[in-house]
Structures are given as C-alpha cells and as structure tokens.
Design a protein around this nucleic acid. Sequence first.
DNA 1: GTCTATAGGCCGATAGAC
DNA 2: GTCTATCGGCCTATAGAC
Lengths: 201, 201
Amino acid sequence: MKTAHRSDGTATRKLILDATEKIMRDEGYAAVSSRRVAEQAGLKSQLVHYHFGTMDDLFLALYRRSEEEWLQRQMRALTSANPVTELWKISIEPNSEFVSEFIALAVHRETVREEIARSNDRTRTIQAAVFARALEDARIDSEDLPAEVLAFIIAALSRTLVTEAALGASSGHDAVRAFITRRLQQIEDAARTHGDALSAT
Amino acid sequence: MKTAHRSDGTATRKLILDATEKIMRDEGYAAVSSRRVAEQAGLKSQLVHYHFGTMDDLFLALYRRSEEEWLQRQMRALTSANPVTELWKISIEPNSEFVSEFIALAVHRETVREEIARSNDRTRTIQAAVFARALEDARIDSEDLPAEVLAFIIAALSRTLVTEAALGASSGHDAVRAFITRRLQQIEDAARTHGDALSAT
DNA sequence: GTCTATAGGCCGATAGAC
DNA sequence: GTCTATCGGCCTATAGAC
C-alpha cells in the first residue's frame, strides 16, 4: 500500500500549479516565470523545475488540469435538458478568459501548440455531436445551420465577450448577450415541443 | 523649409516600427524586446529607447500606425456597395491576427489597455452606424438583429477564425465561412432590392 | 541622432549536498 | 524532495561622449 507521506510531491505539485494559474489569470502567461511561481507558492524556484521540467512542461501540465475540469463542466452542460443554452452559460463565465490566455500562448509556442489545437478541435467535435441532435429535434435543417457552426459561434462569441470585458471594452455586449440568449432559446424551445415528446415520433 | 537631412529620425523610426511589427507577427508580443527589435532593424538597442521611450510607448506607436492603416481599409469597405460583406472580407485576412495580438497584450498592460479599448469600441460604433442603414434597407427590424450585434458578430467570428488558424485548429472553419458568407449576402441582397432602387422609397 | 559603456535586474536551468 | 550555490544569458533604461 502507498503510505501517504507528508510530502510525496503531489501536494507541492498542486501548490505550483495553483500559483501558476493565479499568475496567468492575473497578469497573463508572459508574467509566468519559475521565480514568480515559486514566490507565489512560497517555495524555491528550483522546485518548479524539479517537479515539472521546463516552463513549457509546466504550462502543459496546467493546461491538462484545466482541461479536465472544463470537460467535466461541459459534460454536465451537454447532458442537461438544455445543452445549447447551458453550454453558453458556462462559456461566458470569466473563467473562459483563461482558455483564451492558453490559446494566445500556444499560437507562439511550438511545444504546446499541437496539444492545445487538438484539444480545441476535439471539444468542438463533441459539442457538434450533441448539437446535431438538438437541431434535429428542433427541425432545423443542417443545411441552414450546421451543428459545428453553432458550436463555433458559441465559442467565438463567448471568448470575444470575455476577452473584451477584460480589456474594458464592452460596446454592444449587453445587446449581444440578449440576442444570443434569445436565439439559443428559440432552438431549444423548438426542440422541446418536437423532440422531447415521445408521441411525436 | 524643412531640408530633409539624410537621417532626421523619421527613417529610423520607420525601421524600428517595421522591425517591431515583424517580430510581433512572427513570434508574438512577448518576443518583442528593445534588443530583438534593434537586431531586426540593424540598429543599436539604445536607439529604440531614444526614439520611442519605453517599450510600452513603442507598442502604442505601432498600434497607432496599424490602426490608421486599418481605418483606411475599413473606410473603403464601409463606403462600398456591399459594406457588410466587404468588412467581412478584410476581417478574415491573416492581418487580423495582428489585432488579436494587440488585444492579448493590452489585457495585461495597463499603460496601453485604455487606448486599445477605446479604439475597439470606436471602430465597432462606426461599423454599427453603417450597418444600421444597411439593415434598414434590407427591412430587417433592429429588434431582430441590432446593428451593433452584427458588428460584434463579424469581429468575434473573424478573430476566432484567424486565431484558431494560426493555432492550427480549423475544425468547422470551412462550414463557418460558407455559413456567414451566405447570411451576409442575404442581408445585402435584400438591401439591394429594397433600398438601392430609388423608386421604392 | 548615434555611439560606447554600464547599472541593476530577472530569467531558465543545472550540480551537488543533505 | 528540498536545499544552497551558481552559470550564462537577456532584459529595460540611462549617462555621457561625439
């Protein structure tokens, strides 16, 4: 059996990941350094390298942890009665700015780019699969609105809302939120009246 | 009269701005340093500070230059026969990734944030004013699709397309381009049949 | 306007003791 | 697993000569 020693490394790893996440959220990826992370965590900077290797490795480890949390929240949204609006709701939380920060990082770092690109595509594919069903129930032709387009639109609009809000630019944001909420509800209202009733098949 | 000496500074300033822009496009804002810029321009790094002051001042000067170019291109698009589709066309050019890079920079730099936020809002307001007319001509109720929402959607979708393309993630991009192109053309076809014909008023 | 020189600082990463 | 010590490097910015 594994006797949990007081410091077997997993606690330290968590401290380091938490510190990295906080700096990245507050000041952006460019402010992340082994020294700043260590200071934030109350550790020595060498421990960052001991536990994670290079800084890129640290970024990747943090991304994987965040992705896991996100996938669980997404799963709950997509398996709810209103997958479209529920995904929208969790997508416009300030938390999403964190995703954009990783994308900004990945665009210019070869070592993490591929993994984040694949993760992005995979998430979109999952959403599209669920949305395809919802759109079908709503009697919306996939020619008129492909499910993958709906997934893209939700990602693009929510990311831009959150990023611009962080920037302090919110021109038109209220109108956008109202517009999208209404449109997505129209889809799900239609899906409910047609699809959910087992008799209608 | 101002006798144009061989080096009155304006040529050097252009060299420095060009070098900064190239590094920012190729490697992102985090790769911009006075030394890297000077190396790219074939100059000494001290000249960067002599001509622009701090690095934030340099970023702002570059932003202002890019904004000016962008406003001219936008003006041409918005005064064309098809302002909506023309704006979409120039928005999805790879050049737009440059804008996203500035936004990513501004989110975490107080000194440049306000100016870029104001610029972002101002651009959107201009677009909305032109679109309001186009939507009116197309007999689209502003309750159904507010002009500012259309401007936001174009900005959000184009930025996300360009950023994800740079990331190497292009899941659903072709479908999105086809979908948006069609929708925007529907608006402008309707505007043409109703609005442009002077007899219809 | 451009040069040399330099102050003062943060960075990633490794070696070796415990 | 955590410590001390340290290498080599890049950074912003300024001072002062020309």
